Simulated scan of single mutants.
Amino acid sequence: MRLVSRESGRVLATDARWLGGFWARGRGWLARPPAPTVALGIPLTEGERLHTIGMRFALTIAYCDSHDCVLCVLTLPPFRIAPRVPGAAVAWELVAGGLEGVAVGEMLACD
Protein backbone atom coordinates (compact mmCIF):
# COMPACT_ATOMS: atom_id res chain seq x y z
CA MET A 1 0.00 0.00 0.00
CA ARG A 2 0.96 3.63 -0.42
CA LEU A 3 0.26 6.55 1.92
CA VAL A 4 -0.98 9.55 -0.06
CA SER A 5 -2.41 13.01 0.48
CA ARG A 6 -5.99 13.06 -0.82
CA GLU A 7 -5.82 16.80 -1.64
CA SER A 8 -2.63 16.87 -3.66
CA GLY A 9 -2.29 13.22 -4.62
CA ARG A 10 1.31 13.39 -3.42
CA VAL A 11 2.76 10.02 -2.39
CA LEU A 12 4.16 10.24 1.15
CA ALA A 13 5.33 6.62 1.39
CA THR A 14 5.40 3.82 -1.16
CA ASP A 15 5.33 1.12 1.54
CA ALA A 16 2.57 1.80 4.09
CA ARG A 17 2.15 -0.94 6.69
CA TRP A 18 -0.67 -1.26 9.24
CA LEU A 19 0.50 -2.38 12.70
CA GLY A 20 -2.72 -3.63 14.25
CA GLY A 21 -1.43 -6.53 16.35
CA PHE A 22 0.16 -6.34 19.78
CA TRP A 23 3.56 -7.70 18.71
CA ALA A 24 3.73 -5.66 15.50
CA ARG A 25 2.96 -2.46 17.43
CA GLY A 26 5.51 -3.30 20.09
CA ARG A 27 8.20 -3.89 17.50
CA GLY A 28 7.36 -0.82 15.40
CA TRP A 29 10.57 0.79 14.16
CA LEU A 30 12.80 -0.86 16.80
CA ALA A 31 14.10 -3.65 14.57
CA ARG A 32 13.86 -1.74 11.28
CA PRO A 33 16.46 0.43 9.60
CA PRO A 34 15.32 3.99 8.84
CA ALA A 35 13.67 3.82 5.42
CA PRO A 36 12.24 7.04 3.93
CA THR A 37 9.77 5.10 1.76
CA VAL A 38 8.08 3.30 4.71
CA ALA A 39 5.13 4.53 6.79
CA LEU A 40 3.84 2.61 9.80
CA GLY A 41 0.17 3.07 10.72
CA ILE A 42 -0.76 2.55 14.36
CA PRO A 43 -4.33 2.47 15.68
CA LEU A 44 -4.68 4.54 18.86
CA THR A 45 -6.95 4.45 21.86
CA GLU A 46 -8.04 7.69 23.55
CA GLY A 47 -5.12 9.29 25.40
CA GLU A 48 -2.50 6.85 24.12
CA ARG A 49 1.04 8.19 23.73
CA LEU A 50 3.72 7.10 21.29
CA HIS A 51 7.46 7.07 22.00
CA THR A 52 10.89 6.74 20.45
CA ILE A 53 12.53 5.11 23.47
CA GLY A 54 15.28 2.75 22.32
CA MET A 55 15.42 4.26 18.83
CA ARG A 56 18.46 5.71 17.09
CA PHE A 57 16.61 8.11 14.79
CA ALA A 58 13.78 10.64 14.92
CA LEU A 59 10.27 10.10 13.56
CA THR A 60 7.73 12.47 12.11
CA ILE A 61 4.22 11.49 13.18
CA ALA A 62 0.88 12.51 11.69
CA TYR A 63 -2.01 12.01 14.11
CA CYS A 64 -5.34 11.58 12.29
CA ASP A 65 -8.93 11.35 13.47
CA SER A 66 -11.31 8.53 12.51
CA HIS A 67 -11.99 10.26 9.16
CA ASP A 68 -8.27 10.34 8.21
CA CYS A 69 -8.02 14.10 8.77
CA VAL A 70 -4.64 15.24 10.13
CA LEU A 71 -4.96 16.70 13.65
CA CYS A 72 -1.28 17.23 14.41
CA VAL A 73 2.13 16.67 12.83
CA LEU A 74 5.21 16.52 15.02
CA THR A 75 8.80 15.33 14.89
CA LEU A 76 9.89 13.22 17.84
CA PRO A 77 13.64 12.87 18.54
CA PRO A 78 15.03 9.57 19.90
CA PHE A 79 14.25 8.70 23.54
CA ARG A 80 11.18 10.96 23.81
CA ILE A 81 7.51 10.44 24.63
CA ALA A 82 4.97 12.22 22.45
CA PRO A 83 2.17 14.29 23.96
CA ARG A 84 -1.41 13.04 23.96
CA VAL A 85 -3.45 14.17 20.97
CA PRO A 86 -7.17 14.30 21.81
CA GLY A 87 -9.37 12.78 19.12
CA ALA A 88 -6.54 10.88 17.41
CA ALA A 89 -7.59 7.46 16.10
CA VAL A 90 -4.48 6.60 14.09
CA ALA A 91 -0.87 7.72 13.89
CA TRP A 92 1.30 7.46 10.79
CA GLU A 93 5.01 7.28 11.60
CA LEU A 94 7.71 8.05 9.04
CA VAL A 95 11.42 8.73 9.31
CA ALA A 96 11.91 12.39 10.29
CA GLY A 97 11.11 14.73 7.42
CA GLY A 98 8.88 12.21 5.64
CA LEU A 99 5.75 14.29 6.19
CA GLU A 100 7.19 17.61 5.10
CA GLY A 101 4.44 19.83 3.72
CA VAL A 102 1.59 17.87 5.34
CA ALA A 103 -0.71 20.31 7.14
CA VAL A 104 -3.36 20.10 9.82
CA GLY A 105 -6.71 19.47 8.15
CA GLU A 106 -5.23 17.53 5.24
CA MET A 107 -6.74 14.13 4.48
CA LEU A 108 -4.48 11.05 4.19
CA ALA A 109 -5.35 7.75 2.55
CA CYS A 110 -3.86 4.36 1.74
CA ASP A 111 -4.26 2.94 -1.73
Rank of each mutant, 00 (worst) to 15 (best):
L12V: 05
R2P: 00
L30V: 07
V90S: 08
G26F: 05
V70E: 08
R17S: 03
R27W: 08
G54I: 07
G26Q: 15
V102M: 07
R25C: 08
F57K: 13
G98T: 02
W92Y: 15
A24F: 11
G26A: 12
G98Q: 04
A82D: 13
I53L: 15
G47M: 10
V11W: 01
V90P: 03
S8F: 03
E46I: 09
R32A: 08
T37Y: 11
G41L: 03
E93M: 00
V90I: 11
Y63P: 01
V104L: 08
R10S: 07
V73S: 09
C110L: 10
A31T: 12
D15C: 07
T75E: 10
G21K: 02
T75G: 13
D68L: 09
D15M: 03
G47P: 05
A35Q: 13
R84I: 10
V38E: 02
I61M: 11
G26P: 09
A88N: 11
G20D: 07
P78K: 08
C64S: 13
V38N: 08
R32Q: 15
G98S: 10
D111K: 08
A35H: 09
L30A: 10
R2Y: 01
W23T: 10
A109Y: 00
C64H: 06
L40A: 05
L19G: 10
L76F: 04
L19T: 02
L30H: 09
A91S: 14
V70A: 07
V38P: 06
L99S: 03
E93V: 00
V38L: 11
A103K: 09
D68T: 04
R6G: 01
L59D: 15
I81D: 01
E106F: 05
A82S: 13
R49E: 11
T75H: 09
L40M: 11
L99Q: 00
V11Q: 00
R27S: 14
G28Y: 06
C64Y: 02
V85F: 08
D111I: 03
L3C: 08
C72H: 14
L59W: 02
E48M: 10
L12W: 00
L30G: 04
L74N: 12
G87H: 14
G54W: 09
L19E: 10
E100Q: 14
T37C: 06
L44V: 08
